[in-house]
Design a binder for these strands. Structure first.
Lengths: 346, 346
DNA sequence: GACGTCGATGTGCACGTTCACATCGAAGGT
DNA sequence: ACCTTCGATGTGAACGTGCACATCGACGTC
């Protein structure tokens, strides 16, 4: 084959050096953009690299620098629109900065499942971690067996042992609820996410705040699992005693399931019941009725998470300042409360 | 700190060896499950590894074996339900087999964008590649600069230079179209995916086959971009001359957009127009009307892709035999063709 | 009882890169 | 003219692991 690469092996830095008639160290310097290299020498080395089709060996580099240039992503429900979008954004941003991304999905939400996923990432020698499915349990595991690398969570956890993006979910949820209140609704139910989830908790808090501010009666929230199927199920249950005129669902999927159940029960959305979702998934505006929801920029969150993490890796203790506040998008699934007050429970 | 690890460095195989009073090679053998190790020795080594909290150094291992234990995933639109689900399944399956996954998203579908993503994966020294967004262009790039590793595409491409899963999209699409024909529809439009996509092409072929078999007039297919927004746009365009009674959309998102447009245009689905989608995304059964579609198991596809790839990596030239045939799921968006024949075009 | 076989373990080197240090000539200050 | 500084490059070692080969004792065979 190629006479320059003696064996069947891929060309190394030394092969390049031989061809360019320099030392292997000079080649290394060219690779790492060392300042004191004569342009002429650099050109010669680069030419040699090209004729040999040289590719740096990442493993060798990682071995000696003990830096893997890899960041880990710990995800749950990576299939849903929000997380999937953030993950894609994280990968793009990481690649742009010369980093690699390794994703581990949490199989079940048991501590073992979380630990397994984490272990997988640690074996990969990640330099930093993005937690994209922030469940309280994940942070418990993280606290009990510290990973030894900086990590960022996509949602603020209120803990100070790591960085967190400040997407202000509380305000987003509060605005959604406020919107319903402004339309004259007095009996509002919250279909929340799983209790363990930090996002779910934040959205619930926003809901509770708004209800409290308006001094309305509190309906006990329903804890769901983010899925449209659960939304449908919850909707059917809710219909058994119709003591509400509006529902704020913690995500769009559940909201869509809800509307399905209400329709099946012969009710009109928004005529009889108003529904608000959260996330603004792409189909939200195309379902019937078009879903009023809270827009959240998942791509931006992913990008910021990477920026924050890389900053930290470079030693700059940058704390996230600027908050992202999600935006209410009013569509057809909300309307003024019907004049006939619903029968109150008991 | 720990007296066994002389410097601040992580414990190595030699530190373990010293503590267990064996040679470093014996430790290596324990790590690699070598047969001839006395159980007693093995236990001693394992104990030493635990007290030292030893983690094998992946970079060193990769360097010496020149195997990265990493497979690459080349994806486009990784945000959509189908690809996202497959990617998650691929990661899970790979992890189960002790492999790592590195995903690169194709930024734009230009040859450079594809080459960039590929380059990123090659730098990572992947051992195999799963192409999850099979566009013709991707295979052209792959052919023009061969990657040197085996690769699997999630959809059959009809080319023989690599492995492909045989999800029989053609049959799936044919069944969807047949379903419309059986309901008495004679004027059926196909809202296809982007021309470049292999899946889109397969689904279109299935559609054309069914139309041909039934000897119906062919409406020129519309080429979309998979998005619900495009579906809506296409729907509005289609309404300008209502010369059809049914539409088969190449995915659910576009189908949902279509239904939105038809509703806006004052038409009833399925009373006036029937709509069929493809994929069976989770919200498909919850939109109004519940969407008739073709179910496809994206998780299974992902799993199989990994199995196929790993088989190949282990030298077994296994060809995919068993075909997965997607299943038609009939719901509320399709009904018998209205009796009044639509006005035919010119 | 000498010899081959095999199980269990040890020794040294190689993988491709970067780091610390060395070298050497030219430029610049006195 | 001498010493210092600095730019440009080279030399050797180290990173942590696996492989090829060596060693050594036990066992079975003729």
């Amino acid at each position: 084959m190629n006479p320059d690469s003696p064996k069947g092996r891929a060309p190394s830095i030394r092969d390049v050096a031989r061809l360019a008639e320099v030392s292997h160290q000079t080649v290394s310097r060219v690779l790492n953009d060392h300042p004191s290299i004569r342009p002429e020498t650099r050109d010669r080395v680069i030419a040699a690299m090209e004729t040999l089709q040289y590719r740096p060996n990442r493993a060798a580099r990682a071995l000696v620098t003990s830096r893997s240039h890899t960041i880990g992503v710990l995800a749950a429900t990576s299939t849903e629109y929000g997380p999937a979008t953030s993950i894609a954004a994280i990968e793009d941003a990481a690649r742009e900065h010369g980093y690699y991304v390794n994703t581990a999905n949490i199989a079940d939400s048991s501590p073992e499942g979380i630990a397994d996923a984490l272990e997988h990432l640690m074996l990969q020698a990640i330099e930093g971690l993005v937690v994209i499915a922030p469940q309280v349990r994940v942070f418990e595991v993280l606290a009990s067996s510290p990973v030894g690398v900086p990590f960022v969570s996509l949602q603020s956890t209120g803990r100070s042992d790591h960085l967190a993006l400040s997407v202000d979910q509380v305000t987003g949820a509060r605005r959604a609820t406020q919107h319903l209140i402004n339309l004259g609704h007095r009996e509002i139910v919250h279909l929340a996410g799983p209790q363990d989830w930090i996002e779910a908790e934040a959205r619930m808090r926003g809901f509770l705040d708004a209800i409290g501010d308006a001094e309305l009666d509190l309906h006990p929230p329903i804890l769901g699992d983010w899925s449209a199927d659960f939304g449908y199920f919850a909707g059917r249950e809710l219909l058994r005693h119709r003591d509400f005129t509006a529902v704020f669902a913690a995500n769009d999927q559940m909201a869509i399931g809800l509307m399905h159940a209400f329709r099946d029960g012969g009710l009109d959305v928004p005529g009889d019941i108003s529904v608000v979702g959260f996330d603004d998934i792409p189909v939200a505006q195309h379902v019937w009725p078009p879903l009023t929801t809270v827009y959240q920029d998942h791509r931006e969150s992913g990008r910021r998470a990477v920026a924050l993490l890389l900053n930290q890796l470079q030693g700059e203790r940058l704390l996230e300042v600027e908050q992202i506040v999600p935006r209410l998008v009013v569509r057809g699934s909300t309307a003024e409360a019907p004049v006939s007050k619903p029968v109150t429970r008991a």
